[in-house]
Amino acid sequence: MEAKAEKIVMPGDIIKDTQLLNKKQKIILGPGLRTDGETVYACKAGILKHRSNVFYVDNFQKRYIPSQGENVVGIVTQKAGDIYKVDIGASEQASLSYLAFEGSSKKNRPNIQIGDIVYAKLLVASKDMEPEIVCVDSFGKKGKLGVLSTNGMLFTCSLSLVRKILKPNCPLLRLLSDELKYELAVGINGKIWIKSKTSVEDTIAVANAILAAEYTVPSEFPQLCDSIMKSLVKLK
């Protein structure tokens, strides 16, 4: 079976599009594609996407596979000597050193309890090694990373939904911010933390809007936001 870009591919399909490009041009294969000799095969079921010389498969997935440099939301589950163990939804728990916070030192440890939620960046992610996360960038600044406040709400959703709402042209979060005031941290691992400044109802409304967005096309987001806002008004 052959397949073209923006088409549905199934595992085992041979991808012919990569041969159309100039032989000298380097081709980058993203997630969902693998090579066997000269042939390119799909190994996930989804839509084949293609941007200049980058090819990948956009598929539905719930289980997170760590990948270097991605921002994730996790829950601290264990304190063991110099490191914290953080559940990021992958097959293994990630480790987070207490030195990987802004301004922390051996004497000045960050105050983190078991059950806290952290927004962190994956420093090491390899299939054979335990993932390692940090809450600072390479300049030692925390930026947006760090411990998230305890009076927010954390929920889990599919990885494709996270990618959908994080797309630069996705209007959902902008539409919601016109009506409600909220803070949120979206982890590419399918965990989203939300905190509304005003009330618990608002927090839940934002969460519902995000979850409902999974099976809604972007052009229908304004209607979706309207209906969420209407039900919120009724509640109050």
């Binding site: 199934m10 595992p11 693998r34 095969y41 996930k44 289980r63």
Partner: peptide, 11 residues
């Protein structure tokens, strides 16, 4: 397995 998004050689 298709729905789980695990990498497969074939279906």
């Amino acid at each position: 397995l298709i729905n789980s998004g695990l990498a497969m050689k074939f279906i």
